[in-house]
Amino acid sequence: MISLCYNIPVVLTEGLSKRYGPQVAVEGLSLQVGAGEVYALLGPNGAGKTTALRMLATLVRPTAGRAEVAGFDVRKEPLEVRRRLGLVNGGMRVYDRLTGREVLAFFASFYGLEGQAFREALDWVVALLSMEETLDKRVMEMSTGMRQKVVIARAILHRPPVLFLDEATAGLDVFARRALLDFVKGYRDLGNAILYSTHVMSEAEELADRVGFLHQGRLIYEGSKEEALAMGEGSLERAFIRKVRGAA
């Protein structure tokens, strides 16, 4: 388990860029996310949100710029970064022929959580996500909501100080979506930094402390949620559209 001092930027990027040949996926992204904060990265599909998160999660190498997660450089110390973060995306699945408990034990072992340490972590995550019923069921027998709980539990079992969620509510029903949003708020309140990427503005309105608008790979606006709402006359969607039109 890793704890960090409150208010220190846990995620830091400076001029972070990714190009695929001539195609720009992300260009000069600079942002900071502090402990105990939900930063909503907003943009339509194809804006570069997933690529940005993948760079921060060390899954994709940046072509320019730098980034640190929990004090570790994503290029130089990818394993240290991965030890300190949890990643959930909408398309993410877990092994359908394993039980919930087996999936969690499998991933926990990579963080050194075995034996008593695993049992304690399991108790914590089961209580946090109310997922007792999923433990001894095979994933293939679970509902979508139950599966999503296992996906999230897998990502936070080692209590990472940084959590990345990328379109995490995609495909979820209303109950599962509500459970996820409540979880995000609760996890933020535990002092963790959360980078929440979505194109659903209403989720950002509910969760975010700060927002960033990503459009065609570029961060075109960053500010507190209140400032953004004021700019959009109470609507993040309106604020986003105005900013995009202004940038065009």
Partner: peptide
Amino acid sequence: EKGTLEALLAAPVP
């Protein structure tokens, strides 16, 4: 294809 690889790659495994 099943979407499980990304979770594994995000774990601290060389």
